[in-house]
Design a protein around this nucleic acid. Structure first.
Lengths: 204, 204
DNA sequence: GTCTATATTCCGATAGAC
DNA sequence: GTCTATCGGAATATAGAC
């Protein structure tokens, strides 16, 4: 309560500046000097708070991932009907990414550079939640409510349609020949359209 | 003919080593020393052939993109039926990426770091081909052969489902709890399943 | 905790012999 | 064309005053 009213501490300033720079430039491309500048303080302070660039990066990326994951799992573990769950998941997720549109590039990039890191710190215990989604799909198939489909493939399709437009934004914008604001609108329409597209495909 | 029998020239050795390293580490993360090592020669030679790291990178990325694009546009400009075109496109594309699975991460990454570069060198004149695909979709909607859908959204969905599983491979592997070879099989099944999924969704 | 100044490491690039 | 040796700059990291 009280803490929220204080202006941000140096540590917080560094972290948010670091997140910006790392997301734009990646680990190797980021400069401690630039982070310091954006945080409005001296380079040496970064080392005072976080020993090294590597350590700072680790903190930033861990925070980024844990801002993303719980949000999804929260929706997955509700006891909604399959179609409603799909609608909530896609809409929530796209809405969130729209406010953090650098996150996907950042995560994809670093996850591919250093795969083992993530699965030490994140994921792992979250797999159970995913399994429950898979079972829900299988059940719906069994009841004939949706056409036969592999839960894995459905999951991949859903995630792909949600995340990829953020990764490929510059390409799509150019390919479709539309400016920034228009692309924003196209993306925003996807909060509904992706779920529609999925559900249409699932008709028996 | 004859040239193919020669062993690779230094220039070719550098280029293929450079592609490897740039794809794994990105522009900023790559080291000229490592490229030289993998090419089995001295660092100074890289500068002899390609003045600078930047120049070398430019050659590599231009080659990479032009290995990808014509393949897609070739399929788009055939006069196949819409569904057949979708089947060909997805299958071709996934098959190609399966043999160049680092390419998507590389391109997404660098395209976001430096968007303007690409649209100077690539794309641009290719937009016409895409427009013809868009028109074909609109026509099919008009004829009632498929349900009403925005061509843009369909195009994004198709590309997303094709490319994203390569970008998110480490995550999907972990999330689905399957080993490398199994993931290969899942991807390979997608050469058919993605088209099926799309076409199912398009039913009127 | 925060700064200035400096040490240290790393890496792209060049010079010059062969 | 290819190598060894080295330069010069940039960036991370530390020392030490305040």
């Amino acid at each position: 309560m009280e803490a929220n009213l204080q202006k941000a501490s140096s540590e917080e300033l560094i972290l948010s500046a670091a997140q910006e720079v790392f997301m734009e430039k990646g680990l190797a491309g980021a400069r401690m000097q630039e982070i310091a500048d954006r945080a409005g303080m001296n380079k040496a302070l970064l080392h005072y708070y976080f020993r090294s660039k590597e350590k700072l990066f680790q903190v930033v990326i861990t925070k980024a991932i844990s801002s993303l994951l719980p949000r999804l799992l929260g929706v997955i573990e509700t006891d909604l009907d399959l179609f409603d769950k799909i609608r909530h998941l896609t809409s929530e997720f796209i809405g969130f990414l729209n406010k953090n549109s650098f996150l996907p590039v950042f995560i994809v990039n670093e996850i591919n550079r250093n795969p083992q890191f993530f699965f030490k710190n994140v994921v792992r215990q979250e797999k159970a939640h995913l399994d429950s989604f898979q079972r829900q799909v299988e059940e719906a198939v069994h009841q004939g409510r949706i056409r036969p489909i592999s839960p894995d493939q459905l999951f991949m399709n859903m995630m792909s349609m949600v995340v990829f437009p953020f990764l490929a934004k510059p390409v799509f914008k150019e390919a479709l020949g539309i400016p920034e604001e228009e692309y924003q609108r196209v993306i925003d329409r996807r909060r509904i359209e992706v779920a529609d597209f999925l559900i249409q495909s699932l008709r028996p």
